[in-house]
Amino acid sequence: MSSAGGALIVTLLTLTLIKSTPIIYAALGGVISERSGVVNIGLEGMMIGGAFTAVLFSGMTGSPVIGIIAGIAAGALLGFILGFAATVFKVDQIVAGTGINLVAAGGAAYALTLIYNQPGASPQVSALGNNFWILVAIAFACAALLHGVLYFTPWGLRVRACGENPRAVHDAGLHPLRLRLYAVILSGALAGLGGAFLSIGEVNIYSDGMTAGRGFIALAAVIFGRWTPWGATGAAIFFGFFEALQYVLQGHISWLPADAMQALPYVAALFAIAGLVGKVRAPAADGIPY
C-alpha cells in the first residue's frame, strides 16, 4: 500500500469517528426515549438547541465547558417540553416533535439576528479545540453506561417495560408517565450534547442548518441498531462513515461531484431502514400515548 493510500485511510477513519460522534449522542437519546415509549422526532431540534446554546454560553463566559453544559441543558429543556406534552397532554408525538424542530430552528435563527445581529452564523467563540477527543470518548462511555442502565438496573427494566406495556408498569405500582418524562429529558440532554459537539467541538461557531438532518439520521440509526445502545452506536458510526467518505472522496474522485456526494449519508440511511424488511420490532408501545 502506498503511503498516500495509508494516510487516506487514517484520515477516513479519524474523520469517521469525529463525524459519528454527534450522531451517536443523538441516537443514544433516541434509544432511551423510544425504549420508554416516546418517539422523539424532535432530536434534530434538540441538537440545534444544544449547538446554539453552547455557542451562546461559551461566547458569554469564554468557557467551552460551560458552553457544553448549557448545550446539554438546552437539549434537556426541549426534551422536557416534548416529554411533558407527550405524557401530560398525550399529544401526537410525531406532530409535537415536528413542532420542536421548527421552534428550535426558528428560535436559533431569531436569536442569531437578535443577539449577534448577523443572520446565518454566529461569530467565533472559544471552543474545545483538540480537547474535543474527550467528547468522542465520552460518547462511547455513554453507550456503555446506557447499556448498563437499561439492562442491569431496576430503572432500566422499568423503562423497557414502559415502552412495551405501560399499563403493566402502572399495575406494578410505578409511574409510567414519570418514567417516560425522565427518559425524554435524558434523550434531549444527549441530543443537546451531540449538538454542542457540532458547534464548539468540531468547529467554533453556530451556523443555520449546521445539524443538517443529523437528528433524523440518528432516528434511522435507532431503527438500524434495533433500539439497543450498542446497535445504535454502530449504526451511527456506519452513517458517520458515509459522511466522512464524502469529505475524503471530494478531492480524489472527479467524476462524482461534491454536491451529489453530500447525499451519501441520507441515501445510506434510506437503504438502511428499507433493507430491514420487517425483521425488526419496535417497542410495542412506542409512540402510543398512555
Partner: peptide, 12 residues
Amino acid sequence: DAIHVIEGLIIL
C-alpha cells in the same frame, strides 16, 4: 425567523 418559532409552537 420569529415567524417560524410561532409556527412551531402552533404545531406543538
